[in-house]
Design a binder for these strands. Structure first.
Lengths: 216, 216, 216, 216
DNA sequence: GATGAATGAGTTTTCATTCAT
DNA sequence: AATGAATGAAAACTCATTCAT
């Protein structure tokens, strides 16, 4: 009675399902998206899904884990390049812009997954909160570490790097969601330039320009 | 087995239910939270809930609408005070800090509601997306308008105010969620100072301190 | 806190409620009609309804009982007049037409109640079936009795009077519902004439007119 | 506790459910019958019901549609046979009796469905009224058409065929419900004979036997 | 491996009825 | 008498998961 039996190498089939799941989860959110939606999107039968995943949740977690591991690699790479650049005496702006570009590029290559992650990150579903807390911290932690590095080198002023990291993370996330995910812009260069410039100025070690009384 | 019948004036009872609903929705999210959870939290019977609200969704929407209307008032007030301050020749930093303080204070007074809103705002549940898009724009729009105002007065440099507004919104939201909602800090003053300082510097009209080539 | 307290003599208030109930029940049917609908139609509060009736069902039964007792009176009266007419040597047609007219007139004066009764009579709700069976039989029984009377007098042919009574009841009910209730006709005279003529011919004692073979 | 899993071909299972639904709906009426009742009657789990029908209402509509389409076929067939018989010079009584027999036989084969339909037809539930109006008209329309045919051929007297059709429909419905559905009689022959005889006499073109004034 | 019919726990919602005021 | 807030049993429906084929 089976409609069609498309036999596929396990890995390929699994990837197909995960792609469909990304689509569906990012479009509807974890809760609203039903296994049915995924079946339809993937063009498979009910049983097939459960052959590859123990549950809807597990499929979702696999996507999250993928994002996490990839993003961590990106952050690691960005960090390495930042340190290398600073070691070579590059200016802060260029180094920082390069950093931002790396982050934006990663999200630009995975817009659906990005949307899915940030949605669910905020929604703090009891079942995922353990991972989600990590996510909230992941970017902030790396950035704070790199800010400390730069403060240590005297490239930026002494400051509450943790708080500034939160500011930068928020700015980055919102730019990503608004410009990359929502508007689908390709001009990551400009985005990175603006963000880097903004923070480089804000954190510049020289304080001359601010007069206590009167206009700036 | 029967619960004691607690008769209350309608307004009071409704407020009770909405408070319980805020608690529950912010703890679990709209989808996961069940009407049952609300009943328990509010200590009422099933019928009582439906006596005051046509549906779970309607109760939720009432909370959202409350946040929106209140927040809009706050933004309006902040704007008015900003313009007044600038008219009186106050410096940009003080004016901006005051602005940020207003926003932080509002969220500090409604941490549960704030969490709830930002969660659901991001989770983009099909049913609320119409409101959610507004939310994303609400802050950004007001801020962009005020940035334009300041650019016009020559108080900050000419820039893509819409993009900068996105940065500021992101920074504000993340600070709010991390420091006010999550850590429950009371020191809004410091938060506002840091945020204002950060952006006032970043947007200062004088460019002396940043050399195009070479270290900062 | 009470909106308005319209104090009324008990009987009048009760009649008001029953009128509203008739309206509502006939418009929606017993099951679909809610106590709420009745409250709205009667312009009273919840408690007031339950002050006069123990339950929705009881209010409904009161309407049914009213119909039954009134209709029984009508049938009794019709029967008496039929016998009297026959005693006086009136022709069957005139007597029968008069009979039908009585029945039609009663329903014409209570169209809402009639609709309500026939609806619910058929719907055989477990709770009312005991009454409903009676209703189904009420008309049929009386008619069968009067047919027997006429057979006895040799005014109509010998026949299965119970079966014929069913036919006549069905015809009467359908004419009532279609012409009186649905179309709201006032011309009961024609209706009665047609029905009487139809049955008087069908039951005429002379059989001449039907040739075994060929057309009628 | 778990019920044994009975796997069945979809068509068979669906038929099972519809049969159970007919049973339940005809016994309790659409409103009072619960999905639970159907589950019990069909020996299936809740989910199975909703696997085959989107809602209780849809299952009910499917039954209604089945009745309608089948009954229409019966009426069409009866009509064709009536015309054929008349063309061949058969007498009105035989032709008409055959007609009635067709209708009775159909209902005799589906007594539960018949009861269900007439119940709900009268109960005019808001959700089904659209279909119900059709039902009321379906029989009447076909009969009126066939009466016109016979009037045209001079086989019966000129008359208000629409009104007479209402009479015949009412008579037929009541005979069906009382004798076939309620008493479960098998003797459709007698029923058809009586009904046909009744109306053939009533509508005979010859008027000799009835004197306008005076006894019959 | 693949299929999809079957399951049932869990949810939202309705509404007749009760009872404190 | 009259009010309407409060109750909760019962109903419809959802959907992740299981399992016979």
């Amino acid at each position: 009675m089976a409609r069609k039996r498309r036999v596929l190498p396990p890995d390929e089939r699994k990837r197909e399902i995960l792609t469909a799941a990304t689509e569906v989860f990012s479009a509807k959110g974890y809760r609203v998206a039903s296994v049915n939606d995924i079946l339809e999107a993937a063009g498979i039968a009910r049983g097939t899904f459960y052959h590859y995943f123990d549950s809807k949740k597990e499929a979702f977690l696999e996507l999250i884990e993928f994002y996490f591991s990839e993003f961590e690699l990106v952050l690691e790479d960005c960090h390495d390049r930042l340190v290398a650049a600073l070691d070579e005496g590059a200016n802060v702006f260029d180094a920082w812009k390069d950093y931002a570009l790396g982050v934006f590029r990663f999200h630009s290559e995975n817009p659906k997954l990005t949307l899915l992650i940030y949605r669910e990150a905020m929604s703090l579903d009891e079942h995922f909160s353990f991972r989600v807390d990590e996510l909230a911290d992941l970017g902030t932690t790396w950035i704070a570490r790199d800010l400390d590095e730069m403060v240590g080198r005297g490239l930026i002023k002494t400051c509450d790097t943790s708080l500034i990291a939160t500011i930068i993370t928020g700015a980055t996330v919102f730019l990503t969601l608004e410009y990359i995910v929502r508007r689908g812009t390709d001009d990551l260069e400009t985005l990175a330039t603006e963000l880097a410039m903004n923070q480089v100025k804000a954190l510049a070690p020289i304080e001359l320009f601010l007069q206590p009384e009167g206009g700036v």
